[in-house]
Design a binder for these strands. Structure first.
Lengths: 190, 190
DNA sequence: CCAGTATCGCACTGATCGCTGCCTTTTTGG
DNA sequence: CCAAAAAGGCAGCGATCAGTGCGATACTGG
């Protein structure tokens, strides 16, 4: 080969150096492979080849497919949803649930969740959970500051997060906006 | 080897022949391997070795690990819960939810669910779902025959099945009886 | 500009995987 | 009881995987 040698102009000390680029490429490769759901066995060499890096690098930085998936899921679900502030508890919950439904409704995301659960163990489950708990608590806390009496985080998780995740992961029914709003209505007592 | 040769008295045309015995051994091996969660990679040869059969047999009967897991999960969740009949909707739902909580609370079962989701795809998800929908509908239908006005199957799934599955699969919080009863109470309007 | 260090590419190796003919053994059906 | 069919055991094939020294390259602070 011996392409145009080095000369890559601005590869220097800025953030986004080689290490970060490799990380991004590997993450993207994992998501693509998981989404494809073809016969690709999702092994380290396959991921590395698709990412354009060497398997050695992946072995050394992540070790196993499970840890790699957990890392990808953590990145994927970190900051994926901004906690809304619409001025009312119902508005906040509806917008939050809608965002989550849109997130989990994406087949690629769903495939990532399933794969991470499968080989990521408890750590993988935590990665898929993301920051749902803190986000819910932030919404409820804001309502409490408004003087309202919101439901507990536990109730909210059971009434919103759980149905969204269950329907996405275990069933093939769509996460329609009407159904999602209905969850909020039922939680807040119609 | 050459143990007591053939002579196995009743190995004939009754159900429970060799084929069924192989099936049971393979299923047991899968559950053990999934439960162990050690470094065993859960491949066909490993399963076959633990089951005491040859990998060829497993390849020919199931093909892939995903299909095998889906089959095991189907068996595991088929008939695992008998729809109760306590005379009241609340009693039926509480007993049903309690049974499901006990089921999903078992770490080995949980590991099977996660693994099946991971490599079983949509079929694996359906296997883990089991007959929940029909069971719920049976309970609600019975209440309707009593003259009551039960919630819809959708509401019941969202309020009972989903939180149980979500908490079991995605969190490490226990599925306590009090919490489970609380789900029923919230569904039936306190 | 230059040493020091972390990261990555490369060339391997032993082990395992997925899979396939071929034959033996069991089960089925008349 | 006996042939046909189904299922399992056996040996072995190419391909891939997980993992390891070693050298080269890119980032770091001075």
């Amino acid at each position: 080969m011996s392409t145009s040698a080095s000369s890559s102009p601005q590869a220097g000390s800025r953030p986004g150096g080689r290490s970060a680029r490799v990380r991004a490429a590997v993450h993207r490769a994992v998501q693509e492979l998981v989404a494809d759901e073809t016969s690709e066995p999702l092994t380290i060499p396959v991921v590395a080849a698709r990412a354009g890096v060497h398997a050695t690098t992946v072995y050394r930085r992540w070790g196993t497919v499970g840890e790699l998936l957990a890392d990808v899921a953590t990145s994927r679900f970190s900051g994926d949803i901004v906690v809304p502030d619409t001025g009312s508890l119902r508005g906040d919950l509806e917008r939050y649930a809608s965002s989550l439904a849109k997130d989990l409704g994406d087949p690629d995301t769903l495939a990532l969740v399933r794969a991470t659960l499968g080989s990521g163990g408890e750590q993988g489950a935590a990665a898929c959970r993301g920051e749902r708990r803190q986000q819910i608590e932030a919404i409820l806390e804001r309502e409490r500051c408004r003087g309202g009496e919101p439901p507990t985080p536990e109730q909210t998780t059971d009434a919103l997060i759980a149905p969204l995740y269950y329907r996405a992961v275990f069933t093939d029914e769509p996460l329609s906006p009407e159904w999602t709003r209905g969850l909020v209505s039922h939680l807040l007592g119609d």
